[in-house]
Write a protein that binds this DNA or RNA. Structure first.
Length: 277
DNA sequence: ATGACTTAGATGCTAAGA
């Protein structure tokens, strides 16, 4: 099973590129972020024609997460329990919830499409929101892992954190900026502490997943590695290959992020399982 | 010159991205 994650930066502006890529690259399931539309605006037809079903969570022109899959998707989860909100409180003091998390199960593998809040600037309310959002996600994931210790799980998406100094092209540019600050990196490392690991990094040690549209960042290869597939131990044991599709940053009207892909061998798990028939 | 892209909506501007 070939699984991918891709911040598409508006599915309506990119649907041709995305569906052509899915077919060309033989992708079974893709988690998308920043679809930037509601369900009644989503371009379903090109996906259907390409053989993919779509599940999505989109509230307005901001954020929005989705899955496209040519295998059956089950157990849809919109957001996660206790997900923090952001913005103007309603009459009950409740902050609006944003469309940043969607879960599905495919072939018994639990998958999440995640769009972690950007944070904007250190000290900005959005920065605190980002840290709380990650903390709550980690807490929920820890509980889920305890309840389903043998089921493969992957948290996939745009994490908006560069965990290593080498995940940005020039650390000095990021002094006092988001994405590299110690609290953000601590929030990211909490996922490793509960048993997840970046399943792509061992197979693809270098390379970025995002380049800003401005200032010739892509031609100069001044990018950031911020899109990750964080897998549980049972998920990691299925991974046979991984890649970052840098070519998708080229050509006409690209997203500013590129797809991250992993290949899973679902039979491998059965062979390795001591209690297998 | 405090901006150099790109997107969507409330469009001829603003907000947001990272």
């Amino acid at each position: 099973m070939r699984v991918a994650t891709w911040n598409v930066n508006s599915i309506r502006a990119r649907v041709g590129r995305v569906t052509e890529w899915l077919v060309r690259e033989d992708i079974d399931v893709v988690a998308m972020q920043e679809i930037k539309c509601r369900e009644n605006q989503f371009p379903f037809e090109p996906f259907t024609e390409a053989g993919y079903d779509v599940e999505l969570h989109g509230l307005n022109q901001w954020n929005g997460v989705a899955f496209a899959s040519r295998l059956p998707m089950e157990d849809l989860a919109v957001g996660f329990e206790g997900v923090p909100g952001f913005g103007k409180p309603d009459e009950n003091g409740v902050l609006p919830s944003e469309a940043r998390a969607l879960g599905v199960t495919v072939n018994g593998v639990r998958l999440w499409s995640l769009y972690v809040p950007n944070g904007r600037e250190l000290g900005d309310p959005h920065y605190d929101y980002k840290l709380k959002w990650l903390d709550q996600l980690a807490d929920q994931t820890r509980g889920w892992l305890a309840e389903h210790p043998d089921q493969p799980l992957a948290l996939m998406g745009d994490w908006n954190v560069a965990p290593l100094d080498t995940d940005v092209w020039d650390l000095s540019v990021f002094e006092g900026a988001t994405h590299v600050s110690p609290p953000e990196r601590a929030a990211f490392s909490k996922f490793e502490a509960i048993g997840l690991s970046d399943v792509v990094r061992p197979l693809v040690p270098t390379g970025y997943t995002y380049w800003d549209y401005k200032q010739l960042r892509f031609p100069r290869n001044e990018g950031m590695r911020i899109d990750f597939i964080m897998g549980s131990a049972p998920f990691a044991s299925l991974v046979t290959d991984a890649r970052i599709d840098r070519n998708e940053r080229k050509g006409t009207a690209p997203s500013d992020h590129v797809p991250v892909v992993v290949d899973l061998d679902l039979d491998l798990e059965d062979d390795d399982r001591p209690m297998a028939l």
